[in-house]
């Protein structure tokens, strides 16, 4: 056993070596260069989140932090029917992701492997609408689908078919979500598919693999990081979406983002809105962390 003096000395050496390590770390050019951005993120990103968390612990309908923290808001969320809004948001987000993967995989495959120069044109066609506000694009759909609008009006006047309105329903919301978030699934999936080396699929075919086997055992696993990122991006965005259910769905169902907006505006209950936001952030955050743990970003970005 070491004497107390020796122990003290070894502790001092240890702490000074830790300090030296920290100094070496902090004086790295990379760390120094990223300090301004890190500070900005800390102030601009983390601080508002902390304010939201702080408000979620304040009594309902208060507007400052000078109160004893309480879990009242979370309790009322559990007691009220907010689970419906969470379930609708999660359900619609899942349906959107599944539909988009079915639509985007073949399209992305074509763009990555088959279309050649045409892929650029297609990319452009998909990207250009992103410059137009989402609400305006959705309102375009309203004019297309509304009674006596472009579609139903034409059907009625040309063929005498008087169809019922297609708006203000759950399928209309799904249409909006699929339409708006298509590029967010398509491009990551395309990236994933383009990462599959042609040699590998050719080798598999040479060794007698069927098309299905090549797809299932070679292409799908190798493209999985892109597919997962696309799916995750779409899922998170759909979960927080508001415009689709409001504009196309006529609020046929209330999604969680709508409840949060109501609490902050007409409800004037900032603590309740904050508590709903914190729950949503926790749910989405844990999901994203779970998926990211299964992914190697360096590999996707081709750094290894």
């Amino acid at each position: 056993m070491a004497s107390p003096a020796a122990e003290l000395e070894s502790r001092a050496v240890e702490s000074s070596s830790r300090w030296a390590e920290f100094r070496a770390w902090i004086t790295q050019p990379g760390v120094l260069c990223s300090t301004p951005v890190l500070l900005l993120l800390l102030i601009g990103f983390l601080a508002p989140l902390l304010v939201v968390v702080g408000y979620s612990l304040m009594p309902p309908r208060t507007f400052d932090f000078g109160h004893v923290p309480t879990l009242e808001n979370f309790i009322s969320i559990v007691n009220e029917s907010y689970y419906r809004s969470f379930l609708w948001a999660f359900g619609l987000a899942c349906i959107t992701v599944v539909l988009l993967l079915i639509i985007c995989y073949p399209l992305a495959y074509g763009m990555a492997k088959l279309f050649g120069h045409w892929a650029h044109l297609l990319t452009l066609l998909l990207v250009i609408p992103l410059f137009v506000s989402e609400n305006i694009r959705l309102f375009g759909w309203v004019l297309f689908l509304i009674k006596r609008g472009v579609l139903l009006g034409a059907l009625e006047s040309w063929f005498g078919i008087g169809a019922d309105s297609m708006l203000y329903s759950v399928p209309a919301i799904v249409l909006g979500l699929v339409y708006v978030y298509l590029p967010f699934t398509l491009f990551p999936v395309m990236l994933g598919i383009s990462m599959v080396p042609r040699d590998v699929t050719e080798a598999a075919r040479d060794l007698g693999a069927s098309r299905w086997q090549v797809f299932r055992e070679i292409e799908l696993p190798l493209a999985m990081p892109g597919i997962l990122i696309g799916a995750m991006l779409t899922f998170v965005l759909s979960l927080g979406s508001l415009a689709e259910s409001k504009i196309l769905g006529g609020q046929a169902v209330i999604m969680i983002a709508d409840d949060i907006e109501t609490a902050f505006t007409f409800g004037q209950n900032w603590p309740l809105g904050s508590a709903l936001s914190v729950l949503l952030i926790l749910l989405v955050g844990s999901l994203v962390l779970y998926v990211l743990r299964r992914l190697d970003l360096d590999e996707i970005l081709g750094r290894r």
Binding site: F139, V142, K147, R148, G149, S165, Y168, K246, I247
Partner: peptide, 15 residues
């Protein structure tokens, strides 16, 4: 909806 334009449009178009 909380958008009066959208509401008027639905009223004018017979929705």
């Amino acid at each position: 909806t909380d958008d009066l334009v959208q509401m008027n449009l639905a009223l004018i178009n017979g929705e």
